[in-house]
Amino acid sequence: MSMDLWEYQQDEVMSEYYQELCLSEFQERAIDEFTAERLSSYYVENSNLLVDSFRALEEAQKVSSLSPTSGLIMAAISIEIALKIGLLKPIVFGFVHSEAVAESISNAVVKQTGIDRFKTLLVTLLKEISHVDIVTYKRSGTKLSLWDERGEVQKRRNMISHKGSLSSSQDCQFAIDVAEAILNELLPDVLTSLNLHLQNKVIVE
């Protein structure tokens, strides 16, 4: 059944409420509230949460030679899923004690456009559990951090979406390289800190 106008408005109000809550009260108390055990448990119980991101990356790789623009869009989608569903949602879930509230808040957070507004939260908690610093984390041989490269991919995706720009093969490959680094380097490093790892795209203990 489709969502009617009232339900849509209510959903928007709740999303804004949860976003404000996460960015103020929860963010300030993140270290005190957060438990790595809950985060690890979430990953184990949702072991397939990165599958869609890998699938989008594979699609980007398949179409890149035929349509660099389509390839860049799919790579950008892979990046967004990896960071929002594979990192942000589990972390938000990890520091909210009530199971029901945690699910509601984490779902509302990932609905928000963009991930930059949650950078401080991610930086703080990733350092706490894994010593991974997304501000300085870089691919080998690159000058920009992986986080900043993600931002560059997002800008290029927006140019396509909002202005009808076309992507070059070079830009497409750049986006694919960033997506691969997030899925094959950054996230595995975070999982390793929790004594977890990826096996055939599935998170295992």
Rank of each mutant, 00 (worst) to 15 (best):
E103Q: 12
E152C: 05
P68R: 06
S98Q: 13
S24H: 14
G141P: 12
E20P: 00
Y42Q: 07
E12S: 11
Y17T: 08
S15G: 12
G86A: 04
L50K: 02
D4K: 05
L122R: 01
L166C: 07
E99D: 13
T69V: 05
S41A: 15
L66K: 13
Q9I: 12
V204K: 10
D177L: 08
I105F: 10
I77G: 05
L125P: 05
E152S: 10
G141K: 13
I105C: 13
H131C: 08
Q173N: 11
S40G: 13
C22W: 01
E152R: 13
E7M: 11
H162L: 09
N46E: 12
T35Y: 11
F118A: 06
K163L: 15
V63K: 11
Y43V: 04
A179Y: 00
I176V: 07
L186K: 00
S70M: 15
E128R: 10
L194V: 02
S53D: 02
L49A: 04
S145F: 05
A175N: 06
Y18G: 03
R150K: 09
F54C: 07
Q27Y: 13
V96E: 14
E149N: 06
Y17H: 13
L72M: 14
N195F: 03
K163T: 06
T142I: 02
E12W: 04
A60W: 02
E99P: 06
V96M: 11
I115E: 07
L191C: 02
H131F: 09
C22R: 03
Y17A: 13
E58R: 11
F34D: 08
Q154R: 12
L146K: 02
L186N: 00
R38A: 08
F34R: 06
R156G: 03
N48M: 12
F118M: 08
L126H: 00
L196G: 10
E180N: 14
R55L: 11
S130T: 09
G94E: 08
G151W: 00
I105A: 12
A76W: 01
I176Q: 07
Q27R: 15
R156V: 01
A82P: 01
F95R: 08
A108H: 03
I73W: 02
N184P: 01
E99T: 08
E80L: 03
S165C: 08
I81R: 10
A108Y: 02
G164K: 12
E45M: 07
V153Y: 03
W147M: 06
A108N: 11
I160D: 10
S168V: 02
E45H: 07
L57W: 04
I73Q: 12
T120N: 15
T124P: 04
A102N: 04
S41I: 05
L166V: 10
E185C: 03
S24A: 14
I73F: 07
Q170N: 12
L72Y: 03
G114P: 04
A76R: 03
Q173G: 03
V204L: 10
E20T: 05
V51D: 15
C172F: 02
L23D: 08
Y17E: 14
N195Q: 12
L125F: 06
Q199M: 10
K111G: 09
E128P: 00
A108W: 00
G164F: 11
E152D: 13
T142P: 00
C172Y: 00
K155D: 10
K201P: 01
Q112A: 09
M1K: 07
S193M: 06
S165V: 04
E128S: 11
K163D: 11
S53K: 00
P188M: 03
R156N: 12
A102D: 07
I31Q: 14
A102T: 02
C172D: 04
S193C: 07
